[in-house]
Design a protein around this nucleic acid. Sequence first.
RNA 1: GCGCCCGUAGUUCAGUUGGAUAGAACGCCAGAUUGCGGUUCUGGAGGUCAGGGGUUCGAAUCCCUUCGGGCGCACCA
Length: 552
Amino acid sequence: MRNEVRKAVMDALAPLLSRAGTDKAALPYIAIEVPEDKFGDFSTNVAMVCTKFLKIPPRKIAEELLPTLKENQLFSAVSIAGPGFINFSVKPERWIEDFRSIPDDNSEYGSLPPVLGEKVLIEFVSANPTGPLHIGHGRGAAVGDSLARLLKKAGYDATTEYYTNDTGLQMENLGRSTLVRYRQLMGMDATLPENCYQGEYIKDIAREIVDRDGNRYMDMPETEALPFFTTYTAGNILEDIKKDLAHFRIGFDTWASEKFFHESGAVEQTIQKLREQGSIYEKDGALWLKTQYLAGDEKDRVVKRANGITTYLAADIAYHDDKYRRGFTRIIDIWGADHHGYVARMKAAAKALGQNPDSLQPMLIQIVSLKKGGEVVAMSTRSGKFTTLKEVVDDVGVDAARFTFLTRSHEAQLEFDLDLTKQQSSENPVYYVQYAYARISNIFKTAQARGVEPFPENPAWHRLTVDDEIKIMKRALFFPALVEDAAKGLAPHQTTHYLVELAGLFHKYYNVNRVVTDDLELTGARLAMVARLRTVIKNGLELLGVVAPETM
RNA sequence: GCGCCCGUAGUUCAGUUGGAUAGAACGCCAGAUUGCGGUUCUGGAGGUCAGGGGUUCGAAUCCCUUCGGGCGCACCA
């Protein structure tokens, strides 16, 4: 529908453009919006936006467009208002005509035609296998997964990936942590170094090794035992991470490993390539990437240390090179907000690799603060004192957790209220939306119990005259536009707001209107309507990875 | 000290690449509700968009500045 309005506007604008001798490629973005009710169904700022361009006052442009727009059969009314807005009312029969094309069988709806020439990679979570996922990872997971669903729905070729940092100094620290705990369990007087991982889960893993292999590693020198402990611990933790993610309904299309890029020689090759090409130079025995020159970074960054060991950044450059080689044209990296200093570095890397830096889109997820019993729960990472994703999900459930993570823009800090999220009442948006779905499902059960034909061949659409019915149909029909907007804006949280609004319209309607009545014709029409509403709610929840329940 | 992000109703947050009288939920106040299924609905109060300056037809949105909060400033990852 919105696209039809856009086309009508563009068509009307065409003569003015050719008269001015300009083509529409140079045109600024023209908004087709859904305004407040009183202004009609759609509005556009086209006249204001084109003022500078055409050197004509906004109201004058609007007046020139008006006759053409009024001829369009889509509209029942077109008017100029305020500084130069053009407001449209769409003919009621056109709304119904469009609305009836929504499937009434809960099937696919809202998918947009394929976007050609774009291949998107979304990398997210990518937590180091040094400990369990915490609540912040959960937010990143929910955002990344929902974004992937959204982009796919919007017609993009999108792939999800998890990058494991399974090598390097932190991995050694991890292995040493387990080794020390192991020795302690074997009765040895060993103390855990500062830079080691203090969490209880390390002890559990050490205990597993004791049960498995007994004292086998006690006599070994550390250099010999360490690799085993590192590999075992990381593998063990990664399995737990995968389990937690699976339970949170997060799946990845592909898994990438830092170790692989080192072992395959890709890291060295990439460094070599960039060095020959002039983006890397040598200073103080180390190799530096010109991040300052390439992307305005504060300073240049080391990719290979003086001791010959490559840095994390080096591997990440090789990894991103690999992403581009695999044919991705857009690379979305979802990171914690504490990585913002890393953005310039990777933009520089993209540029050095010969790519457009704009094709790399890091999304920084702001922190989550946990609130319990009205108080904010303190969290610190390394010390092992943090709330795990698993704890939260076990407490509030997968649906509520996912939905809550997606109620806020990813770039706003989020307060996660455990008590509220756990509550199964209308105060909790996720239940409010799910309840709307369950209610509709129940209406059909009622209809069935009363022997009413739930899907009449030709619903009497003209019987749907209640104000709220029209509102519901219009809002439901906005769904494809929502998919388009949210995908374009990388803003999956818009889906939750939309669903809450849609559910609100329905609850209000339900409260004053009965669907199943003795009036069979009206009943048939209303059933046809709520069936289509159900489709939209289900497909919306699907974008969030939240279940649409038949019963609560 | 330098850099990045943020500051919107009592609270948590939206605000569609600058648009019409800044919205929602929760909370609060007042009411409705024997009905398909409970966890329902209606109305109301509530704002210096942190403060100040600028850009223009028009600013919560863009620029400068002050204040307040978060984060980052490694040859760690």
